[in-house]
């Protein structure tokens, strides 16, 4: 019998290829559960999970909460905007207080990179990183790779281009780790100001021309411009970004093969992706959202056993 090599899901870094394959196989069975008339199983009925969100989220939080409820876990939600964090409580105190109420698992999003790693050193509960600043967002990378596997049969040998704001994206970093672990070729593409300086050292290809990137890849994972993390101007205007890096149906149709378009959401329609591209048959964006619940069920189910 297999089990995960880790007690927490802090990032893709630290996982093995066998871990990811186990998560995928488990997610396959949960996907079947989600298509039943009664979409609920009692596996985690004796587990309490706290969703601790220090940063805004719609999709990830809903997806985690739905996954927990489908597994019959008890769920409590916490968001920093309506809590004592505003009164000056530290992260560790906040979490320890939650754990004192007998919570078994913490799903956390925080704006500081590495905060779940810090927490893992101090508490016993299982931790799932739901995004830490610009560092990692492991469940997103897992569901992205899972969606590629579903669409193309396997991830190994596929060419994936990650396009957009690589510098501020935790999705990009986790995706690079996950895709490389599974044997895919990865390229990043974006304005030079939005590419991290040492990105090549991760073993990815770098391309500045979006058309060439699209021509090269089998799958394009398009990222949002994270204006909320940009303190300085990285490009002249959104309009100019959209002119040079925006992907539309016309551009997709002009390629000599059909590529798959993914986006982790939220989409800024008309900026990185036009509506006709986002809603075209190239897009598997809503499949990604559907797979997100199955992947998160698998992760929590497997962690609860460790």
């Amino acid at each position: 019998m297999q089990q995960l090599s880790v007690k927490h899901l802090l990032g893709i870094k630290g996982l093995t290829r066998a871990d990811i394959e186990l998560i995928f196989e488990t997610a396959d069975t949960f996907k079947e559960v989600l298509n039943r008339p009664i979409k609920k199983v009692p596996s985690l009925r004796d587990i309490t999970v706290a969703n601790v969100f220090f940063e805004n989220s719609t999709r990830t939080r809903l997806s985690f909460e739905l996954a927990q409820k489908r597994l019959s876990a008890d769920v409590i939600n916490f968001s920093s905007s309506s809590s004592s964090v505003k009164k000056g409580e530290t992260l560790l105190d906040t979490v320890n207080n939650i754990l004192a109420m007998k919570v078994d698992m913490i799903v956390m999003r925080h704006s500081s990179p590495g905060s779940p790693h810090f927490l893992a050193k101090h508490i016993k509960a299982n931790i799932v990183n739901a995004g830490d600043g610009t560092h990692e967002h492991p469940t997103q990378a897992l569901l992205d790779a899972f969606s590629i596997r579903e669409e193309h049969g396997e991830v190994a040998g596929k060419k994936v281009a990650i396009i957009g704001d690589i510098l501020h994206s935790r999705v990009a970093l986790s995706n690079i780790f996950a895709l490389q672990l599974l044997g895919a070729e990865v390229m990043v593409c974006g304005p030079i100001t939005l590419l991290p300086k040492y990105i090549k050292e991760l073993g990815v290809k770098v391309e500045l021309d979006v058309r060439k990137a699209l021509q090269w890849c089998d799958v394009a994972n398009v990222l949002r411009i994270q204006l909320e993390r940009q303190q300085i101007k990285y490009f002249p205007s959104l309009r100019e970004y959209s002119l040079y890096y925006g992907i539309n149906k016309k551009l997709l149709d002009s390629l000599d093969k059909k590529i798959t378009v993914m986006h982790p959401g939220p989409i800024n329609r008309g900026v990185e992706l036009s509506s006709d591209a986002a809603d075209s048959d190239h897009s598997i964006i809503l499949n990604q959202v559907e797979n997100g619940v199955a992947i998160r069920m698998a992760v929590m189910y497997l962690l609860a056993q460790n």
């Binding site: 019998m1 089990q3 069975t29 596996s43 985690l44 497997l302």
Partner: peptide, 11 residues
Amino acid sequence: FRRRETPLKPN
């Protein structure tokens, strides 16, 4: 679930 030494693998 969680009471066995070996994890359960679903089919």
